[in-house]
Simulated assay, not measured.
Amino acid sequence: MNVPDIVGPGLDVLFCGINPGLLSAAKGQHFARPGNRFWPALHRSGFTPRLMSPAEQDELLRYGLGITNLVARPTARADELTAEELRAGGERLTALARRYRPKVVAVVGVTAYRAAFGRKAAAIGPQEETIASARLWVLPNPSGLNAHYQLPALAEVFGRLRSEIAQAH
């Protein structure tokens, strides 16, 4: 099954995951694995008024949020992707941002961002460059495999992005 882009014009944030995991691909839902912390981080940081499930991903649009992936091909682990796939994903993400013009593009996964855009020194947080006309943020990967960021720290970084957007309104 394909995991659809949840996009529309005028989004506050277009979140961009790396690629679907096998369960996400089977369900056609972003961040579908129960141990993934994307949905809890989204809620704890104030982007959504309640904890949403992956099955409710279409409702993100009503909150000014969208979601896509750098690479459509599902894998068990993101490190199975090739550098070429990630670079092509960066080009695709740039085209999506050009078409839909979100205020911010937030790439969820610093290692994938570095590979997709050739930014070897990129760190978590706001970036100096833009994607099309959108501000660019890099957020930590919310996968349970990322031991560097537990949910409170993940929610804090998502919350910094949320605060920047709130100040811009």
Rank of each mutant, 00 (worst) to 15 (best):
R135N: 09
L42A: 00
G64P: 12
A147V: 10
A32Q: 01
L51W: 08
G90W: 00
G144R: 13
L14Q: 01
R160Q: 14
F15D: 03
P126Y: 09
N146H: 12
P34Y: 07
V7H: 05
E85R: 09
V138Q: 09
W39K: 02
N36I: 00
Q150M: 10
A122F: 08
F38A: 02
R33A: 01
G64K: 10
H148F: 06
M1D: 04
P102R: 12
D79Y: 06
Q127Y: 06
Q150G: 08
Q29D: 05
A78K: 10
P54E: 13
A32N: 03
L93F: 06
A76K: 10
I131H: 00
T130D: 00
E56K: 14
E56Y: 12
R77F: 10
L60E: 06
L161W: 05
H169P: 00
S24L: 04
A83G: 07
L70E: 09
A166Y: 05
G118C: 13
G90P: 03
T130Q: 05
A72Q: 12
V138Y: 07
L145S: 13
N69V: 10
P126Q: 15
N19Q: 07
H43P: 01
A88H: 03
R98C: 10
A153Y: 05
D12T: 11
A41Y: 12
E59Q: 14
R101E: 15
L14V: 01
I6A: 08
K27M: 15
W137C: 07
D12M: 08
L23F: 03
N141A: 11
R160E: 12
P40D: 05
A26W: 15
K120C: 06
M1L: 04
I67T: 08
A155V: 05
N69T: 12
E59G: 09
S24W: 03
I165L: 14
A83V: 13
H169W: 09
L60D: 07
L154E: 02
A32V: 01
G46W: 04
S163K: 10
N2Q: 07
I124L: 04
R99M: 08
E164K: 13
G10L: 03
G144E: 14
R77W: 07
R101G: 06
V138G: 07
R160M: 06
A153E: 13
L139S: 05
A121E: 14
Q29V: 04
P9T: 09
G8T: 14
V157K: 11
N146M: 06
C16G: 00
R50E: 11
G144Y: 10
L96Y: 02
A106R: 14
V105K: 09
A32G: 04
K27C: 13
T68D: 02
L61C: 01
A32K: 02
E59S: 13
R77I: 03
P34S: 10
V13Y: 03
F38M: 04
V13G: 01
A72D: 12
Y149F: 15
K27Q: 15
P54T: 13
N19L: 06
V157R: 14
E80L: 03
L151Q: 07
A134W: 02
A112T: 12
A112R: 09
I165K: 03
E128Q: 11
L22C: 06
R101V: 04
P9Y: 08
T68S: 11
R33I: 01
G118I: 13
V13M: 02
